[in-house]
Design a protein around this nucleic acid. Structure first.
Length: 241
DNA sequence: GCGACAG
DNA sequence: ATCTTGTCGC
């Protein structure tokens, strides 16, 4: 579908441009040096919960993705909420703001989270569960973008990466749903999951308030006939258009 | 010192 | 991520 078509759908999903009360559980500066960013990550890492702490019933799943415009000088975050288990889009939001932090492996959240928070603020309802494009716990300091975002807004999050940031793993059986642990320094930091037979596996890790097996289950429940979950696909289309 | 390195 | 045509395969 064309970009015009998608913008039309996006507006139709949330015509009132209603604002969601999104109180941040933690605050810290964003205009920081890479060195300061690392210090913030080391301070926040101890606050992450890898335990299941999700709503009793989840009727909606939300996807988040970020794209860039004008030679990466503008950051565009897209959030799409789908009904569950139908996986039909029922709400969405897009936010654009000047890019203020460079891409540095391991510090992705400092580049993308500010715009994501802007997008979340114009969503109609508070998400039950969010699938974030990128790693969560599978990070050098165990604070990938999914952990960072989930912790700030205190909502369960899952990291869904298309490629590896850190860690090692064996071969993944070529069968839908098969997965092997992603290991680092003797610890399981994530799962390498084959969402469909015959496609490259994706990297799943805990964000916040969810355990790894549960995270893998939810990613599979959100994945139909493609390599990536529908949440990620819808968000990507709105972020890139 | 030499690689590796989410998006 | 983004820049980009054609091309291999179901």
């Amino acid at each position: 579908m064309s970009i015009v078509g998608w913008r039309a759908i996006a507006d139709e999903l949330n015509p009132s441009k209603s604002t969601l009360k999104l109180e941040l559980r933690h605050e810290h500066p964003w205009d920081v040096t890479p060195r300061e960013a690392v210090a913030i990550q080391n301070r926040l890492r101890g606050l992450i919960s890898l335990r299941d702490d999700l709503p009793e019933t989840i009727g909606r799943v939300t996807g988040v993705d970020v794209g860039f415009e004008d030679s990466r000088t503008v950051t565009r975050a897209a959030v799409v909420t789908l009904s569950f288990p139908e996986l039909n889009p029922i709400d969405s939001s897009v936010a654009r703001r000047p890019t203020s932090f460079p891409y540095v492996p391991g510090l992705l959240s400092f580049r993308e989270v500010p715009a994501i928070l802007d997008a979340l603020r114009t969503l109609r309802d508070r998400p039950d569960l969010i699938l974030v494009d990128g790693q969560g716990y599978a990070h050098p300091r165990r604070l990938g973008i999914a952990c960072h975002l989930g912790l700030l807004i205190d909502i369960p999050t899952i990291g869904v990466g298309k490629t590896r940031l850190t860690g090692t793993h064996g071969d993944v059986p070529d069968k839908r749903g098969a997965w092997v642990p992603l290991m680092d320094k003797g610890e399981t930091i994530g799962a390498v999951l084959r969402t469909r037979q015959g496609v490259k596996p994706i990297y799943i890790s805990c964000g916040h308030r969810i355990a790894l097996p549960t995270a893998v289950d939810w990613v599979m429940r959100c994945t139909t006939r493609f390599r990536l979950p529908e949440t990620t696909r819808y968000a990507h289309r709105l972020a890139s258009g």
